[in-house]
Structures are given as C-alpha cells and as structure tokens.
C-alpha cells in the first residue's frame, strides 16, 4: 500500500502563477482521501505533480517510497507511473480502437507493445483484460469501438484499463464531473469497492460536496494553493466545506455577517 509524504511542496509556473504554496500533507497507506476546492485552487496542479506530469518547484514529495524529483532514468519514471492508476474526467480512451484494445493498453507498463496488440496478444493477457472488463460490467461490449459508448461506459472502460495496470494506488481527477448523478454514483461505488478489495490508497479530486462526504474518509480542502481544511469526514461541518467555494469577497461578507450576529 502506498503512502504520500509532502513537505513544503510549492509549484510556480513559468508565467509566475503560484499554484501550490508550501503544502504539507501526509496520506497514509489505504486511506480514502478526497481533495476539494474551487477552480484554480490548485487541485489539478497537485494531481499533475503527484503523477509526475509536472515537476514541483520546491519542497519534498514522496509517493510509495519514491521521489519523482530524483528520477534520472526513463525506467524509474515508468515503474513509478505503473504503480499509480489514474482516472481522468474525460476518460482519455484511444479513439478509433476497440474497447478490449484500450483495456489491453493498461498492461503497457509491463509488456512491450507487440504483446498487448489485441489480435496477437497472448490468451492469458486477453483473459486478464476480459476479467477487468467483467469487473466493471462491460464485458459485453469488448469488441465494440471505444467511441460507440456513453460517458459512463467510457469511464468504466477507463477503469478496466487501470485495473489491467495492477496499480498500488488510485488517483482520480474529477472522475464523475462529466457524468449524470446516477452514473457518477455508480462510478464512485465501483472505484471505492475496487480500492477496498485490493486495499489500495485512493485519492480523488472532486467538485461535489455531497459525494465527497459520502465516499471520502478524510477531506482536504484546498484554497489558492493552500490547505484550508484537513479533517476526517465524521468531524467535518457542511458549512466549513461551503466556505471553500466562496470567493475571498464572499468570505469577508460572511465574516462581517457573523460580527453583526454577535452584536459587535
């Protein structure tokens, strides 16, 4: 099981935008953490830094005992990536190819391309891919084109691809933001149960407070690149979360309102 250690992590983009300001975070093995925050709060930057698609510009970041900033060889980077299963908002399947082929691509971290090519892949690997599809309830469309599916179905296939990767930790970046509420809940149920079965650490970035309270064990609220809230779900107040989505001006107004209430 993977854990995450961050101390004073900063990310400044070349244009000067300070996306993460000295973040200190520890996520233990097997935890189910939800990261909340409004647009521009730094949650996507955090996701990209944790998955090694962006370099941090300061501080220390360690995931599963590995420090992405220290990678020198391609091999180190690909081994690191292979261990972290990603789920994206827009699924990111390869168009023009079949569902089965997309799932087989999940094995690219441990097999060369010619071995995961659907027509010539070994029966063992094809069977593993079919099992992954069965796990997400999509085995009946294995031969269909990836473009023929609905949003929810595409996300299931993307999850099957991730299962194929045999990850040690799952990170999801707004996995249900493009789905209707029913499909969204189904996807969250699926992700949480996969993490429970395999005892995986699960970090998801979400937009919806209700979903966060329902599926998270711990909620981290980001605001302008800083941690504003970090609490276990049982101890959290809905009003605290609402503050996350307020602009600084609104926050000040709310504060003044409070002063009036107290008769100051």
């Amino acid at each position: 099981m993977f854990s995450v250690t961050m101390s004073e992590v900063t990310k400044v983009y070349p244009n000067g935008t300070e996306a993460l300001k000295a973040l200190d975070l520890n996520i233990g093995p097997g935890e189910h953490v939800v990261i909340l925050g409004h647009n521009g709060s730094g949650k996507s930057t955090l996701f990209r830094c944790m998955t090694d698609f962006e370099n941090i510009t300061g501080g220390y970041l360690e995931i599963g005992g590995k420090v992405p900033a220290s990678f020198k060889k391609r091999k180190e980077r690909s081994t690191f990536r292979r261990n972290i299963g990603l789920v994206f908002q827009h699924y990111h399947l390869t168009h023009n190819l079949s569902v089965l082929q997309n799932v087989l691509f999940g094995a690219l971290g441990r097999q060369p391309f010619r071995k995961v090519c659907a027509p010539i892949a070994s029966s063992t690997l094809r069977l593993e891919a079919m099992n992954a599809l069965e796990r997400v309830g999509m085995e009946s469309v294995a031969g269909n084109g990836a473009d023929e599916l609905s949003g929810g179905q595409k996300q299931r296939v993307a999850i099957a691809r991730m299962i194929m990767q045999r990850p040690r930790m799952i990170m999801a970046d707004e996995p249900i933001a493009s789905l209707d509420p029913k499909a969204g809940k189904e996807i969250m149920d699926l992700l949480v149960s996969i993490c429970r079965e395999n005892q995986l650490t699960f970090i998801s970035i979400l937009h919806q407070m209700d979903i966060a309270l329902e599926y998270g064990e711990r909620i981290i609220g980001l605001n302008q690149g800083e941690v504003l809230i970090d609490k276990g779900v049982p101890h959290i107040q809905r009003s605290e979360l609402q503050k996350l989505y307020m602009s600084p001006k609104e926050q000040k107004a709310k504060w003044n309102e409070g002063l009036v209430e107290y008769g100051v």
Partner: peptide, 28 residues
C-alpha cells in the same frame, strides 16, 4: 494530450505511446 498521457500513465515506453495513442488517434 489526454489520451497520450493516459497511455504514459500506465508506465508505457515511448514505442507503446506512439503505437497505442499517437498513431491510432492520427489515422483518420
């Protein structure tokens, strides 16, 4: 970038990324 990053995130090497995402995406 998305589908390309998705294949990269599986830990694939560059050949896998080219044949698994870039070429199929470009075919039409």
């Amino acid at each position: 970038k998305g589908p390309i990053e998705a294949v990269q995130s599986t830990g694939s090497n560059q050949t896998g990324v080219i044949f698994g995402s870039i070429l199929p995406l470009g075919v039409p």
